[in-house]
Amino acid sequence: MSASEPEASIVVCPRGPLLVRGDFEILDAAGQPVPRTRGTVALCRCGASAIKPYCDGSHKLNGFEKNS
């Protein structure tokens, strides 16, 4: 990435998760790293994921943002 670009980017997916790419850390409330095995991650936005903070596709079952 060039110096003018941010180190990480977040795409707000309509009716879906936050897609996070680039150089970043995910920490829990105690400051400990959350286990992570991939570069680009999808973070739950609907609240229904069973693997939070990651997305598990549950937004497709609970109608998240369906009317927006």
């Binding site: 997916c13 991939r38 999808a42 997305c55 596709g57």
Partner: peptide, 16 residues
């Protein structure tokens, strides 16, 4: 288990 997490990422990238 891996596909639950991975494909929730991939479906966004693949669609958009």
């Amino acid at each position: 288990d891996e596909h639950v997490e991975a494909d929730a990422v991939h479906e966004q990238i693949a669609g958009r």
